[in-house]
Design a protein around this nucleic acid. Structure first.
Lengths: 249, 249
DNA sequence: CGGATGGTTGAAACCGTTCAAAATCTGTGG
DNA sequence: CCACAGATTTTGAACGGTTTCAACCATCCG
C-alpha cells in the first residue's frame, strides 16, 4: 500500500549518478512519505516566499518561472519526477522566482533539518545530490544558448529532444513516445517565442516527419534528424549516457 | 611584495556573504599565491577538457561561453575578481563549455585536493562558498529571463546595470563610473542580439541621458531610470544589498 | 603611417510577433 | 446523448523589431 522503495522516483533519479546504499534509500523513503497532492497550475512556492522546505517532485511535473511586471512569463526549468528545487535554494531566505505544477502532481515536502542532517551524516548521499544539481545547472546554461542563439525551429526541436531524453532517463517513455509535461503556451514561455510561432515550428517538424505531437503525446519519428535539427550538444546532459546503458533487470 | 591578505579579492568576495575567520583567510591566501598571468582573449579551460582544478579570477575578467558548430557564440556568465568557476564544475569529468579571459588577467589555479580539504575541514567556509554559487545560479536564471522575454533596449540596460552593481559590490567602481569587462561584440553574444542592434540600443540609452559609454568606461547618469528601463528585479542579486551598507572603513 | 580592433551608420530583407478568428478537444451537467 | 463552456491548437494576414550586408570612421600602437 505505502510507497515501495523501488517506486521512489527520487532514489531512482539519484541512482542515475551513483549507487545509493540500502540505508540511504531507507532514509530517502522516509522523507518522501508525506507527499502533498496538488492540482495542475498551482504554485508550490511563490516569488518572495521564505523557502523553508525542500520540495521533490514525486509524480507529475512542475516548472520554475518568473514573471515580468507587465505579465510576460519566462519558464527557466522543468522539474520531472525525482527532481527537486536545488538544495541551495532553500538555504536562501527569499525565493527570487516561483515554482508551479504543470499537471496534477504529488510533491514531497522535506523539512530543513532533514537536509541538514543529511549533509552532516551522509556525505556520500550529499555528494550524489550535489551531482544532480550540477546537471540542473548545465541544463540551465544550455537553455541560455537555446534562447540566445538558436532559431525558433532549433529551439523547439531542442526542447522536445531534451525532454524526451530526460523522460527516457527516468523510464517514463514507452518506445519512442512520451507524455511531455507542457502545452504549446508553456513551450513559448520557455523558448522566448510567441505561441503562434511555436505552433508553426511544431507543424514544420511534423511535416518533415521528425516528430508527431498530439496534445501532450510526443513521438520521436527520427532519432537522428531531430537532434540534428536542434544542433543538439550530446554532452551537456552528462548523466544521460549512463542511464541508457543502465537498464535495470 | 607578496599578495596582501586585504588584497585577496576572493576573500573580499566571500566577505560579502558572511564573516571569514582569520584562519580561513590565511587558508585562502595560501591557495591564491601561485596565480597564472594570462593575456586577453585566452581560454582558461576549453570545452571537452578534463577540469581538474578550480580557477579563481584574481585580477581582470573572464566569461563562460559556448560555441555552436556554425560559429554562433553565447556567453553565459561574466566572472569578475573573486569569482570562480563553481566548485561543482571541477567535480565533473568534462567541461561542457569554455571559460576565457576578456582582458589581461591573473587567475589562481587551485588543485582539487585543496578544495576537498576545504569541504572536509572547513564547513563554515564551505557553506559561504556554497552561498556564492547560489547567487551565480540566480544570475543565470535571471539571464534566461533577459534573453527570453526582454526587448533589446531592456536587455542592454539590464546588462549594464547588473554589471555596475556587481562591480560596486567588489569596490571596483569610482562614483558612478566603472570599467566594464566587455565590448559591444561580447554584449551581443551575451544578450542574444546582433552587434549592430546592441550599438543602436546603447546609442538610445546615451541619447536619453541614462548612461555614457566610451569604450569600456561606463558612467551611470540616471540611477533610477536605468534599472527602470531594464525592468530590473532588485532581488535576484541577493547579496548586493549587504555590500552596499557594508562599506569597510 | 599602415594595420588591427572596435565603434557607428544606412538601407533592405527577414524572422518572428501581433491581431483576429476558426477549429478541435475535454469535461460537465442536463 | 447532446449542449455548452473553457482550454488548447491551428491558420491567415499585416506589421515591426532585429538582422544582415556593406560601408565608413575612430583610435590605438608599433
Amino acid at each position: 500500500m505505502g510507497t515501495h522503495s523501488v517506486n521512489n522516483p527520487w532514489v531512482r533519479k539519484l541512482r542515475l549518478f551513483a549507487e545509493v546504499s540500502v540505508d540511504d534509500e531507507r532514509f530517502l523513503n522516509d522523507l518522501v512519505r508525506n507527499a502533498r497532492t496538488m492540482s495542475a497550475r498551482q504554485d508550490i512556492i511563490s516569488q518572495g516566499d521564505l523557502s523553508e522546505c525542500l520540495y521533490v517532485i514525486i509524480e507529475g511535473a512542475a516548472c520554475r518561472y518568473k514573471m515580468l511586471p507587465d505579465g510576460r512569463r519566462q519558464i527557466m526549468a522543468f522539474l520531472l519526477p525525482g527532481d527537486s528545487c536545488d538544495v541551495h535554494t532553500f538555504l536562501m531566505k527569499r525565493m527570487d522566482h516561483s515554482i508551479a505544477t504543470l499537471v496534477p502532481s504529488r510533491v514531497a515536502v522535506i523539512p530543513r533539518f532533514a537536509i541538514l542532517e543529511m549533509t552532516e551524516q551522509r556525505p556520500r548521499l550529499t555528494r550524489i545530490f550535489w551531482w544532480s544539481t550540477m546537471v540542473d545547472e548545465a541544463i540551465l546554461r544550455e537553455w541560455i544558448v537555446v534562447v540566445g542563439r538558436r532559431t525558433a525551429y532549433e529551439r523547439v526541436s531542442h526542447l522536445l529532444w531534451e525532454t524526451y531524453l530526460r523522460l527516457a532517463a527516468i523510464d517514463s517513455t514507452s518506445g519512442s513516445s512520451c507524455e511531455v509535461p507542457f502545452n504549446q503556451t508553456d513551450m513559448a514561455d520557455t523558448l522566448g517565442l510567441s505561441l503562434v510561432h511555436v505552433n508553426r515550428s511544431v507543424r514544420r517538424l511534423k511535416q518533415e516527419g521528425l516528430i508527431s505531437l498530439e496534445g501532450r503525446r510526443l513521438t520521436i519519428l527520427d532519432r537522428k534528424r531531430l537532434p540534428a535539427a536542434a544542433n543538439f550538444d550530446p554532452d551537456y546532459l552528462h548523466q544521460v549516457e549512463m542511464p541508457i546503458s543502465r537498464v535495470a533487470g
